[in-house]
Design a binder for these strands. Structure first.
Lengths: 134, 134
DNA sequence: CAGTATCCCAGTAGATACTG
DNA sequence: CAGTATCTACTGGGATACTG
C-alpha cells in the first residue's frame, strides 16, 4: 500500500471512518463532554443534555461503556443510583474532539456563508429551469 | 453560561456536535481524505473509495460542496468531465480529522479489548439468567 | 461520463408503558 | 431512579433506470 502525502495508508482512512461512526452519532460527543467535569447520574446527565430521550441516553451510554470510554457504577441504594464517569481513554478522546470542535467554532461562519451562497445559486438555477411557473 | 474546565461553553458542544453530524456520516471523511493529493473525477473517486454507491457519492459530494469543503469543476467536453477538489477550508479540515484518526489508530487495540471484555461479561450475565435453557 | 429520479428495504430514534 | 420492551415513524442508503 502506498502512503499518501501525510504518510497515511488507505487502511488508516477506514480506521478514521470507523471511529467517526462510533462517536459521530448525535449524542456520544455531547455525553463525553458533559462528563468532563466529573461523574453524573443518569437523570442529571439527561437534564443537562437537552432533548435526548430516555432510550437514546441508555443506548448511547451502553455503547460508550462497551468501548471502554465510560464507566458505569451502581450504588445499591433505594432508590438505586447509577453514576457514569469517563475512563482514562474517555478523557483522552476529548483532546482530538476538542481540536475538531475548535475547527468547527473557527469555521462555522464560513460554512454558513458557503451554504447561503450554494442555496442561493441553487434557487437561481431552479428559476432558470422554471421561468414561467407561478 | 458557565465554561467547563476547558473554557468551553455548552453551546460549543452543540457546534462540535453539529460539525460531527456533518462529517460523521459514512463517506464524507473518506472522500476528503481521497482528495488530499489532488483533484479527482467522479468515476475515479468512486473507484478508489471501495463500496460507495453512485447515489451516495453524488449526494455526499453535493453536501461537501454546499458547505464549501469541495469544489466542483465541469469541463464541457464530450463525454463530460467533472473534477472535484478540496477547497482551502477542506484542506484545513484534514488537520483535526487526522488528529482524531491518529487517536483512533493509537487506541483501536484498547477499544477492541474493551469490547471483548464487555461482550464476554454480557454473555456471562445472560448465562446466569438462563442457566437451564439449551 | 456524470448525475438525477424512483422504488424499496432496513436500521434508527421517538413515545409510551412496564419492571427491578 | 434507572432501565428495558414494544410499537411506530422516519430516514439513509442500495439497486435500478433514465437524462444531459
Amino acid at each position: 500500500m502506498k502512503p499518501d502525502t501525510n504518510g497515511h495508508l488507505p487502511s488508516d482512512c477506514r480506521a478514521i471512518s470507523e471511529i467517526l461512526s462510533r462517536i459521530g452519532d448525535k449524542w456520544s460527543v455531547l455525553i463525553v463532554m458533559r462528563l468532563t467535569d466529573g461523574p453524573l447520574r443518569f437523570s442529571k446527565l439527561r437534564e443537562t443534555i437537552g432533548g435526548i430521550s430516555h432510550k437514546m441516553l441508555s443506548t448511547t451510554l451502553r455503547g460508550l461503556e462497551r468501548d471502554g470510554l465510560v464507566t458505569r457504577t451502581v450504588y445499591p441504594t433505594i432508590p438505586p443510583q447509577v453514576e457514569y464517569s469517563l475512563t482514562q481513554l474517555g478523557h483522552e478522546l476529548r483532546e482530538p474532539v476538542n481540536a475538531l470542535g475548535e475547527w468547527a467554532l473557527r469555521n462555522q461562519g464560513k460554512i454558513h456563508e458557503a451554504r447561503l451562497r450554494y442555496d442561493a445559486s441553487a434557487i437561481d438555477a431552479a428559476k432558470r429551469n422554471l421561468p414561467k411557473t407561478a
